[in-house]
């Protein structure tokens, strides 16, 4: 068969989702502005930066420890997108920013994102080349580096948005122990409970991916979020139909999904 076995349904769903998102982007270009529910964690970014500015202490940001390839790449990209928003806010307020990086491939992107954010806000003179700091590619060496840095610099805000593994709790608990306002977000299911326990605000799953679009208030980006919601409605519809059909002994939908 031309399409790989076991991926037929996924392939057509991907195309359908792309068409729906493209349709909503087109509608947004024509003037349609979807209403997106506010996300407390995103509203808190400005508050966190303002607090850091008043206290004269830095904001720590990490786009996660995931790479730019593989299953967690989308989370890293989302982390970098929101870094742009955070860096622009910090440039406006004149606060200090510290970005810690684990993956070498993420380093040049993060440096460029922060530099461009300062330029966009007309505050390039405030840009410090030491803002973005590579720590280590070793997971727990990176965690130890962040731990030490948070304690030494006494960060007023700790923003963790991206892909995290077991180091999530080390970093979040350290932030808590120094009294930093903490905003975290990840789509990794095993780490969400840690963030929920240790942080003030948590962006759960899809909220992380939608965050930069929501922050930008760009109608075209918001249109894609509206399209994504239609995808969720379809997924829920399939779930309900599948459960009902399986309950009455009809399994054609289940078989269709695994084709």
């Amino acid at each position: 068969m031309f399409i790989a076995s076991g991926r037929v349904f996924t392939f057509f769903m991907l195309i359908l989702l792309a068409i729906i998102i493209a349709y909503y982007i087109k509608r947004s270009r024509e003037g349609y502005v979807p209403t997106i529910r506010p996300i407390a964690g995103l509203d808190a970014i400005e508050e966190a930066v303002g607090r850091a500015t008043e206290m004269g202490r830095p904001v720590h940001y990490t786009p996660g420890i995931g790479a730019l390839n593989g299953a967690t790449a989308a989370m890293t990209f989302a982390g970098l997108e929101i870094l742009s928003v955070v860096a622009r806010t910090i440039a406006r307020y004149g606060a200090n920013l510290i970005v810690t990086i684990r993956q070498p491939t993420v380093l040049p992107l993060a440096e460029e994102v922060v530099k461009q954010a300062y330029m966009a806000e007309g505050a390039i003179e405030l840009y410090n080349p030491d803002t973005v700091r590579y720590l280590s590619q070793e997971q727990f060496a990176y965690a130890a580096g962040v731990l030490g840095l948070l304690h030494r610099e006494k960060a007023a805000a700790n923003i963790l948005l991206g892909a995290f593994w077991a180091e999530s709790l080390v970093v979040a608990e350290t932030g808590n122990s120094i009294g930093a306002i903490q905003i975290a977000g990840t789509a990794r299911l095993t780490q969400i409970p840690f963030f929920a326990a240790a942080c003030d605000y948590v962006l759960i799953g899809e909220e992380l991916y939608a965050a930069s679009a929501i922050c930008s208030k760009n109608p075209i980006k918001l249109g894609s979020i509206a399209g994504q919601d239609i995808g969720k409605i379809i997924a829920v519809g399939l779930l309900v139909c599948g459960a009902l059909l399986e309950t009455v002994g009809i399994s054609w939908l289940t078989q269709l999904l695994v084709k």
């Binding site: 989702l17 989308a74 990209f77 299911l189 799953g205 899809e206 991916y209 995808g231 969720k232």
Partner: peptide
């Protein structure tokens, strides 16, 4: 629920990128 929402969110972000 979180996983399905996150997967669709990742696809939407991928398309935007």
């Amino acid at each position: 629920g979180i996983m399905i929402g996150a997967a669709i969110g990742a696809i939407a972000l991928g398309i935007r990128v």
